[in-house]
Design a protein around this nucleic acid. Structure first.
Length: 692
RNA sequence: GCCCCCGUAGUUCAGGGGAUAGAACGGCGGCCUUCUAAGCCGCAUGUCGCAGGUUCGAGUCCUGCCGGGGGCACCA
């Protein structure tokens, strides 16, 4: 049973007659089908079913029409369309919403206790819009499941230890000791240090990546390699590395870091590379004659500009080149300081971890995201080692290539490679992400008694979670089959995947500031007379709401290409559209002295009114559907549709000017709609301002 | 090589096996003396990637292929 798919009709439609017709014809053995080939019979069926469905529908409709519960029942095109008694059903819907108010939409209590783990930010790293997608999705899922009737535990799992933390603290101690970051942005400052650290240890690789890219994609560069290397040899006398470079580039073979003899080769070669890139750029722009021996197409000027930008940035850091390998060793040593719980290190770790946590709490506050439970990676390292010990003893895990692993396919007796092999501890005994997650999952089962456990984590970790769940199963945890990884796709930028190392990243703080400023400008323009504090509140509701909505209005298994311009626009399919409908409803209600009560007269309803009532009526079932399928998108779509239907109604049906009793009915309908808009927005974690 | 996701209007995306596949953005043209124009109305553009199959009925389910993204042993 579904709504009748035409605007302005209110009721339900059923396609059951097609099924009945199909059964009747195929079972009774219609004489027309006899003696036909299978293919012909099928074709005949196709012709017979439609008319038969229509005739069955007519019979049923005739019987239903006399039923007092329905306003009308008619057969149309083989479907039975039943229209409801508007008077009765409209009163019931509007009355229910009036009684239940903010509880409208709540489902019956479910027995399942569900834990949803989401957000999981890493300390010592910046919070970017990818993290925002996770936090919004996870939090909205929790809100919807709670409303649907489940007992929900919202859990965060802070990545407060691991290689990233070590890298950050190494860089801090080595290069930024004693610097005092601004109090309000210490977490972000740490994130910058992490990025710098990452750039330092990957510096050589980044340099060689650019060279290899040029060798593979710039024929002009390859053609000139003889001349470039000759210049390198003549000016700097660098010896045997010259032959290596020449050979690799000319033959488009990968240049490898460990093949250099002289620490000075690349730094000396770098200015020559730059000179050539500039010559090639001019040639690409057509300002120079093309070299004869270049047969292939040479790249676009924009490509050269991008290369030159990278060349320039890397060049400015060329003094890092000789140190990279030593730095890597230092970081290993730094890890050992953590492993033996060096007091100085631990105290620095605790202090800086708090800097990040302060930032996170500020952000969660701003986006209205909350948690019931906070887990920390650092707290499950030891339990993780215990689990590995246990896995070894029970021979679920074994030593392979020097480290403990679980050969999952083998243990499950699978022929086809499915879950592969999962390492559960590093060969030096330090813990991996898997070590900690196994312990945490066990902890969730044993200490929290959850029936169902959901992980909101990016989709690239799909295999990883299948492995974790299977290992839990091998350990004998029955709850393992109720574990679910809710994957979601990446947030990328038009310029490609986000990466803090390359600087191609949009931080939450930056985009939030921009979106809030923009929202403030608009409210200043629309409603200049409002007090400042209220304008700030509205700007917050609209700006943050709009950011969150852009994360929710796409299905989770779809990549979001984040467009800044689009995210700053408050028109069209966006949160402000929905919020505006709510504010409009509020404005009407503001002008009503006494709210109507008792039986209302919903007679001669317009198509817009009927569509609107139908839409507010389905809210509770939409909540159930979204909760069962873990799809916050359904509610994001629902509430937008509701706003649209309200705007249609707003245009077509005057409320305050209407004659009684229509006026009272419309006022009640506006009140009910306002309530459902508010409830729907609340379900997806978006505020519903009363004035905009 | 194995596995996962995506392919629908110029663009970004909805679409619960059922009727004529819908929005938003962008484009063009209208609507503020009437409850806020962050709104509304009108116009244009579709081989639903391709080919089979299941079904009375497929954008939706199954298989294969093409194109794009991602994952597969000591990152998280």
């Amino acid at each position: 049973m579904r709504p009748i798919p035409f605007a302005g009709t209110w009721g339900t439609s059923s396609s059951i007659c097609y099924q009945l017709a199909n059964e009747q014809i195929s079972e009774s053995g219609d004489p027309e089908l006899e003696g036909l080939s299978k293919k012909q019979a099928k074709k005949k069926m196709k012709e017979l079913v439609g008319p038969r469905a229509q005739s069955i529908a007519e019979q049923i409709a005739e019987r239903l029409a006399s039923d007092d519960d329905f306003a009308s029942a008619e057969a149309s095109n083989g479907y039975i369309n039943i229209e409801f008694d508007t008077q009765r059903f409209a009163n019931r819907v509007v009355g229910t919403i009036g009684d239940q108010a903010s509880e409208y939409g709540r489902g019956e209590k479910k027995a399942d206790k569900v834990m949803v783990e989401y957000s999981q930010p890493n300390t010592h790293k910046a919070f970017h819009i990818g993290h925002l997608r996770n936090a919004t999705l996870g939090n909205t899922l929790c809100r919807i499941m709670d409303l649907a009737g489940y007992e929900v535990q919202k859990a965060n799992y802070i990545g407060d230890i691991g290689m990233h933390v070590i890298k950050c603290l190494w860089c801090y101690e080595r290069f930024h000791q004693g610097e005092e970051p601004e109090l309000s942005a210490r977490g972000r400052w740490l994130g910058d240090i992490y990025t710098e650290s990452d750039q330092r240890v990957n510096f050589r690789q980044d340099v060689l990546t650019l060279l290899n890219e040029l060798a593979n994609n710039d024929p002009a560069f390859v053609a000139m390699v003889d001349r470039m290397v000759k210049e390198l040899y003549q000016v700097h006398d660098v010896g045997e590395d010259v032959a290596y470079l020449l050979g690799q580039i000319a033959n488009k073979r990968e240049i490898k870091d460990e093949s250099f003899y002289d620490q000075g080769t690349i730094p000396k070669f770098w200015p020559i590379v730059g000179k050539q890139l500039h010559v090639n750029l001019e040639m690409s722009r057509g300002e120079r004659e093309r070299h004869d021996d270049i047969e292939d197409e040479i790249p676009q000027p924009s490509q050269y500009e991008e290369w030159i930008e990278r060349w320039d940035l890397l060049g400015s850091r060329m003094d890092w080149w000789p140190h990279v390998n030593a730095w890597r060793e230092e970081i290993k040593a730094e890890f050992q300081r953590w492993e033996r719980k060096d007091p100085d290190f631990v105290s620095l770790w605790e202090t800086t971890k708090q800097w990040s946590m302060v930032d996170f709490h500020r952000i969660y506050d701003e986006i209205d995201v909350t948690f019931d439970t906070w887990f920390y990676e650092s707290e499950v390292e030891e339990p993780g080692r215990e689990i590995v010990k246990d896995l070894m003893e029970r021979e679920i895990a074994e030593i392979s290539e020097g480290l403990p692993v679980v050969k999952i396919d083998e243990k499950l007796g699978l022929e086809k490679e499915t879950y592969r092999t999962m390492p559960v501890l590093r060969s030096d005994g330090t813990t991996l992400y898997s070590t900690k997650d196994l312990a945490l999952t066990k902890h969730k089962f044993e200490e929290y008694g959850v029936d169902r456990s959901i992980w909101v984590v990016d989709v690239r970790q799909g295999l990883y979670f299948q492995q974790i769940f299977k290992i839990m199963e091998l350990m004998g945890f029955e709850q393992a089959e109720k574990c679910f990884h809710l994957g979601y796709e990446m947030v990328t930028l038009p310029s490609g995947a986000m990466s803090s190392r390359s600087g191609n990243v949009i931080l939450y703080d930056d985009i939030a500031r921009e979106v809030l400023e923009r929202a403030r400008e608009i409210i200043d323009e629309k409603n200049p007379e409002l007090p400042d504090a209220q304008k700030d509140d509205i700007a917050h509701d609209v700006g943050i709401g709009s950011l969150k909505y852009s994360m929710l209005s796409r299905d989770n298994n779809r990549v979001i290409v984040f467009d800044v311009e689009e995210s700053l626009s408050f028109d069209g399919h966006a949160a402000p559209y929905i919020q505006y409908a709510h504010a409009r409803a509020c404005r009407i209600l503001e002008k009503v002295d006494v709210m109507p009560s008792g039986e209302l007269t919903f007679a001669d309803l317009t198509a817009e009114e009927i569509d609107l009532i139908q839409q507010i009526a389905i809210f509770p079932t939409e909540i159930q559907r979204a909760a069962e399928e873990y799809k916050p998108l359904y509610i994001a779509t629902y509430v937008f549709e509701l706003a649209k239907k309200f705007n249609d109604f707003y245009r077509a049906c005057p409320v305050l000017q209407a004659e009684e009793p229509t006026r009272a009915a419309r006022v009640a309908l506006v009140n009910a709609t306002r309530q459902v808009l508010a409830n729907g927005l609340a379900a997806i974690g978006i505020e519903a301002p009363e004035v905009m």
